[in-house]
Computed example of a mutant assay.
Amino acid sequence: MSRKPPSGAVVDGIDFDRWAVILCKPDCVERGLVQRVLDMIRASGVTVTDRMDVVAQPWQAHVVYRDLLAEAKRAPRDLSTYLDEAFADRPVSVALAHGEPGIHAWLRQLVGHTDPTLAVAGTIRGDLGDDSLSVALAERRLVRNLVHTSDDPDAARRDFGTWFRDGDCLADPVFERCSVILCKPDAVERGLVDAVLDRIGAAQVAVSDRLDLTVQAWQAHVHYWDLLVDADWFPDRDIPACLDAEYADRPVTVALAHGEPGVHHRLRQLLGHFDPTRAAAGTIRGDLGDDSLAAALAERRLVRNLVHTSDDLDAARRDFGTWYGARRRALLSPLSPPRQRTSVDT
């Protein structure tokens, strides 16, 4: 079966009002209930296509449950550990659901209450669930409730990018040679984007596919998921609020950097220390930065340090999905000859 959606609408990001992602969780797979769950969804009048069986990576669960990770008052302190135990390196099945506008609310009703013991008969969790929230709390884990579907069109777009990447990309060597450059709002507002990209391009790296965009809040949350997970390290700051203040609805520029294996480490060295006052001369932040960690702490905000590049090949894969999306996968083809900072259509 094709790993691509049957219509260009999903890939083009046009029709997420009518599309949702179905995630059959590890307990559903282990109990052999995936087909029954998908059949119940089909029987409700929803078209189900493109089933894909995958092994979940930790970041995928973090992204799917980013809202809980960001709301420390509503989630247990060790939620990230619970997520890793429930999902990391365990099999899941995902599929696409297509229907009328409002499909997301309809599916959530069909799935039923989070706690299977409170889910009514006729719902998936009510009929097939065998766990309870009280048992999960007693055992300090997540409740096993079989299935998740996208909450709304924005969540469907995010879920699609999380799970429905090209099936071969997990082993795709392109990310060993490709990094994502994020010129942050302070770089844009100070008019330094060209200077930053020129510095990177001069370091034997081909810079291509520049894209100017306005950040959606979820992109900042996914990009900085590690800050959200480790919010306890920053007791003096509200990390979700800081991310929204620095990024949401503000302009950034992204581009791709192509080089030899090891490009991620070399670019991070070129950027310099995250605190511009500690970045060495000759680095981008050392030469162009005008903020400091001390000032950021005093003002209870994030430090403004101009630019980010992907930490490693896994981060590059995630960054590409966050900022470029599945429909721009073709941009990852090898550059021949290298194209310098060409624009892409938004």
Rank of each mutant, 00 (worst) to 15 (best):
Q340G: 01
V21A: 02
L118W: 12
A20N: 04
V303C: 14
P153D: 04
D115V: 04
T214N: 03
I181W: 05
R318Y: 06
A20S: 15
R329Y: 00
A280G: 14
E299C: 09
G201E: 07
L302S: 09
Y224P: 00
L270Q: 00
Q109W: 12
H273V: 08
A86N: 07
A315R: 09
A281Y: 12
A295I: 02
V344N: 11
T283Y: 06
G161E: 10
A9N: 12
H258P: 03
R66K: 15
R77V: 13
G13E: 10
R42G: 15
G282P: 03
A202P: 04
I181E: 01
G161S: 13
F160W: 09
D151T: 06
D287Y: 04
T277E: 09
D159G: 04
T114K: 00
D39Q: 13
K184F: 10
G122K: 11
P6T: 02
G167E: 13
F160E: 02
D17N: 14
R339N: 01
L192M: 11
R144L: 01
A241E: 13
A97P: 12
K73W: 07
L68C: 02
D159T: 03
A203Y: 14
V254C: 12
A245L: 04
D53H: 10
D67F: 08
R77H: 07
E299A: 15
Q35A: 13
L331V: 06
K73T: 05
L267Q: 09
G8Q: 05
D236K: 01
K184G: 08
A255I: 11
V29T: 07
P276W: 03
R301T: 15
R250A: 02
Q35G: 14
D127T: 15
W233K: 00
V55E: 11
D67Y: 05
G32F: 08
W323Q: 00
I200V: 15
F274H: 08
G191F: 05
R339E: 11
M40S: 08
P240K: 07
E71P: 06
T277P: 07
L170E: 14
F16I: 05
L110W: 12
P76H: 01
W233S: 07
A281M: 09
C242S: 11
P235V: 03
V46E: 02
T283M: 04
T47Q: 14
